[in-house]
Nucleic acid binder design. Sequence first.
DNA 1: CGGTCCCTTGAGCCCGGTCAATGTGAGTGG
DNA 2: CCACTCACATTGACCGGGCTCAAGGGACCG
Lengths: 210, 210
Amino acid sequence: MPVGRDLFRIGETNKSIFNLLSGWVVIYTLLEDGRRQIVHFALPGAVMGVPTSNGAKISYGAQALTEVVVSVIPNTVLATVLKDDPEVSMRLASTLARDTSIAYDHMTSIGRRTARERVAYLLLELFTRHRAQWPGNHIEEMVIPLTQEQIGDATGLTFVHVNRVLSTLRKDKIVHFHYRRLRILDPDRLIEVAGIDPQTAMSWFERRST
Amino acid sequence: MPVGRDLFRIGETNKSIFNLLSGWVVIYTLLEDGRRQIVHFALPGAVMGVPTSNGAKISYGAQALTEVVVSVIPNTVLATVLKDDPEVSMRLASTLARDTSIAYDHMTSIGRRTARERVAYLLLELFTRHRAQWPGNHIEEMVIPLTQEQIGDATGLTFVHVNRVLSTLRKDKIVHFHYRRLRILDPDRLIEVAGIDPQTAMSWFERRST
DNA sequence: CGGTCCCTTGAGCCCGGTCAATGTGAGTGG
DNA sequence: CCACTCACATTGACCGGGCTCAAGGGACCG
């Protein structure tokens, strides 16, 4: 699927769940007046669009950030798979629980961290999650398919302020982010600025992505 | 369990999941320096502490806000239940998906709404979710076991500012919140201030809680 | 090589934070 | 039934991080 394509939109009643095989997908919500919040960056392995108990309409949308390959699983099929293979049920539950946990961490970032901390946290998170996909790979430079506006939407800031924060982080020789190219100059200080305890940070570097 | 008791703490590796039968539980995270974010208010029916794929430590804690009754289900037991009853798997998946969805909505609130909107949104949410537990009940006054400080922690504000916002909402005759007693004076304007489309708001009033 | 995103930077403002003092409700023990 | 206490709520003065508005300056693409 091409860049910009919607996997599903706000307000739909989803009949299928999506399993992301490759590429990046943004999960986002909108307010009436157009304010946007990016609530999650889905990376390969992610499961998206699982319906909630009440047959409510879905409150968030999913859009391809890059070229994307997804497998689409109709709800009916999901039901039979869960019936046939309890192992899958367990994995699905874990994956969903992980999504919630990541969401809680983002919420904390947005609610309680300063702009500088939020940006550092997001970059660190994207770096480690992205990197986790090529185990053994220690690149310090990678392509993150995001504009500063999207970083703003993810962190609850305006893109103008994101720009200023990125400037200072660059000036401080901590990270360099320019036209979607991310280079971590000083991992330790980045972890420090992000306000993550180093212990936790280390474990991030060994974890799988989703 | 008594008020203030922890069901589980940040950093633990959970061996059991919890099903809340009655009472209120806060799910919260902490930053190193003590800043706190309440990420969820769990109401009866909620499932808490589902472990994530990677055997990572849990990044949030759960604490009883009121007297609480929970059923504790060891992970091992959960596995066999999922094996025996695929129906449960489906329900668990839906419940977890719902948690994620609620988390996304909160994130949007914190990231993109003004203080006034956030507080209105939270009160409205708690009102409808709490109310959904006694179907057919149309009380306009209820006890919400929260201090203004906790409202602040949930909305990403300071309790001082929460107080000011509540003052204006009271002066505007929209809601009255005083010493844990919540009275909705003007539901329509509350929905408007919260920035929820009335359509969605209506559906909230028919939905079950979790 | 023109167009279109995207990034960058400046000036000024305001929402929400900080610090600090005071008020108030509700239980507790005398 | 009153006095005490302690947690919670309220209010004021002032401050500053992040937003708004606005005007350029690159980078990439056809």
